[in-house]
Write a protein that binds this DNA or RNA. Structure first.
Lengths: 166, 166
DNA sequence: ATCAACTTTCAGAAATTACTGAAATTACAA
DNA sequence: TTGTAATTTCAGTAATTTCTGAAAGTTGAT
């Protein structure tokens, strides 16, 4: 397979994957393009390569920087901004987990707290309170597990976690 | 807080959470409704409660059954079908992981295999091949880790995993 | 066999999400 | 400072996803 073909297939596949992870297609494609690029690319390079508008490129680059999946790189004497991708896969996954935990798990925990102990007809509210307790217990465990996970490093994951879990 | 209010808040929150997990809002709301219901509910009950069309109720119930998040329950002498939710949170998460692994990770692994060893200009294709190798290594590890995870049981997760990871 | 209750399907409509293009703003080299 | 290249913003449009409503299909009691 030649390089151009492989590149397109990878960008396409990464885009599809990303859209299931709270990262929209273009955002993931930009990340993919930067991942396989040996040099930093400018917003213009990216917009040309992916055939998107500069507005779109800009918005998604900023989102990628918010997620710590892409960094700005300034070249001395150049006005243009360049971008590089986070290439350590463990860092990538870790940062996605951090973002999603913040946007999903934490709000859910807050709601569950408010829903503690509902009153009403016996049968219904008993079942309700039981479910809320279960969900809250599970969510809290998931929360602290993910905290520990995201504090551990790449080698730990690649090396130890696998053995522990097998 | 009274029961009705709590119920609505929970269905709402669960719906929002689900839509980040490959489960659309209605699908997650149906699951939430069944979760907190002490009895099995019919499609009609669900459609009335959530104010959705029967087509929508039907399609999402089938999807939930495909994911093993909801089961059919037949009552003797009754023509109508009733539904109950999987209430064990570990089972719920496990089934979601199984589905998503199948729909996301496995296709990605297949693409990565096809992309092994791309030819072209030195610098570009070297970087490309390196990234593909890294991603593939990581994805394979994730794949087998998730396999192990989904084969372990609830108590194992709730009890052991936490301690191991701390 | 018939019929009504129930379930499924699916084309088009509605809702949601993402993108463009153009204008506004910023920032830096001269 | 000025001029201009680069970046950002955002209203309107386009694309995608989800839902409805109505029609077709199933099923089982009579």
């Amino acid at each position: 397979m030649n390089f151009e073909e492989g590149k397109d297939r990878f960008i396409q596949a990464w885009g599809a994957l990303g859209s299931n992870w709270g990262i929209n297609r273009t955002m993931a494609q930009i990340h993919a393009l930067l991942l396989i690029s040996p040099q930093a690319l400018s917003a213009e390079d990216i917009k040309d390569e992916l055939k998107i508008s500069s507005g779109n490129a800009n918005m998604n680059l900023r989102a990628l920087m918010d997620w710590n999946l892409v960094y700005k790189e300034l070249k001395p004497g150049e006005r243009k901004e360049y971008f590089v991708a986070e290439k350590d896969m463990w860092e990538v996954v870790k940062n996605i987990i951090i973002q999603r935990k913040k946007k999903e798990l934490e709000p859910m925990l807050r709601v569950l707290d408010e829903l503690s102990v509902v009153e009403g007809m016996e049968e219904q509210s008993d079942e309700f309170n039981k479910v809320i307790r279960d969900v809250k217990l599970f969510a809290s465990k998931a929360d602290s597990t993910l905290d520990s996970l995201t504090k551990s490093d790449s080698n730990w994951f690649v090396g130890t976690f696998m053995k522990m879990i097998k």
